[in-house]
Write a protein that binds this DNA or RNA. Structure first.
Lengths: 200, 200
DNA sequence: TCATACATACCGACCGGTCGGTATATACTT
DNA sequence: AAGTATATACCGACCGGTCGGTATGTATGA
């Protein structure tokens, strides 16, 4: 819609990925956008409203659309998933000098933070959580029927290994910022390895 | 050492587990401790110093001592690990009314937060990370030699599955606060299941 | 065509309140 | 008396947010 508004939102989105709600001050936001305080409050009711909008933007941009993945092959599914996720991560490119100061993009921090400001977010997260689990279970179930894999683990447990290891790696990227290229590499190596185990 | 000092530290520790550094205010701290501002600054140089001490307390109380676990059996190792971890989690009992307001103990938030205030913490975390990985790899290597497990996955990848799934579950506990008893149950179920897979 | 009227976009000084921190007074212990 | 422990009054910096004002259209009517 409005260009200036979009600009403010974009800058804010990036800031909130780097710092917490409290840490991002209006002064900083005004400085980084190059706009004035008056301009900001012309477009947004409050800092909190801005945070909410930035959050929605984040959630929608980061939530994978499982329907676009190949559901007939577990191998294809998790590879497409990894590629998709990596592409999203790279699209969160950051301009500004904040990167120098040791700050890292941290999706988890943002979510934790947002939960304090908007407790109702928890249900959304739970829902997304269950959708993801269901998608994985479906693919795994099919893969087992197809004979693609055979395993002692049940579908849900296999799904959880995929999902939880993904979190573990994502957290380490946020914590250690030795991200670079090996982000999705590490993930795929681990998943490939686990997949081979499932094939038996 | 000093009783009052210990008391302040304990209250602060619990607060920092629930809220971020910025969110915990001196006023709140003074109120929750039942002490006065003067008393506080008699024992601590600044809020930041308190945070640092609380953080050290947290790190040392939460870092597992791998040497006490049975290293001759992977099965024993991860079971002891889970029990140990569950015991630590339960020891972080929380007094106060903050629980009602939807706040959850969040170790990851604390660490992320601490990294901003004390960037040097990153090396400590990396070191701990490598220690943990080494401990797991050692046990897994032994288990493979003993014939306890046989798997296509290499030692490191197996270790990572254990470690990362643990993170995934821990994060979900923090996020969803449906913690209750199934905390370590979910973990052990998943690990047991994966272990069976490794046995083949 | 040009004066008027009104709306939108934007500015930055300023406000009340809260922050972490300090100065100082007081009570207790030895 | 002197040192320690605790309480209270207070400070300046900074916070999110407001407000009066300006610059720039843009539609209208004579």
């Amino acid at each position: 819609m409005n260009e200036t508004r979009e600009h403010i939102l974009k800058v804010a989105f990036n800031l909130f990925l780097l710092k917490s709600y409290k840490e991002v001050t209006m002064a900083e936001l005004v400085e980084k956008t190059g706009m004035s305080k008056g301009a900001f409050y012309h477009y947004f009711k409050s800092k909190e409203q801005l945070f909410l909008e930035a959050l929605k933007h984040c959630m929608s941009s980061i939530t994978p659309d499982f329907s676009i993945f190949d559901k007939n092959s577990l191998y294809e599914f998790y590879h497409q998933y990894a590629v998709y996720q990596n592409r999203i991560l790279n699209s969160l490119q950051l301009y500004g000098d904040d990167l120098d100061r040791g700050l890292t993009v941290n999706y988890y921090s943002l979510v934790f933070d947002a939960l304090k400001v908007f407790p109702s977010l928890r249900e959304k997260l739970l829902e997304h959580e269950q959708n993801e689990l269901k998608a994985w279970k479906g693919v795994i179930s099919t893969a087992r029927k197809n004979g693609e894999i055979r395993s002692f683990m049940n579908d849900e447990q296999i799904a959880k290994v995929f999902i939880y290891t993904n979190d573990g790696i994502a957290i380490r990227i946020s914590l250690m910022k030795d991200c670079s290229e090996d982000a999705s590499d590490t993930l795929l190596e681990l998943w490939d390895s686990f997949y081979m185990e499932l094939k038996g």
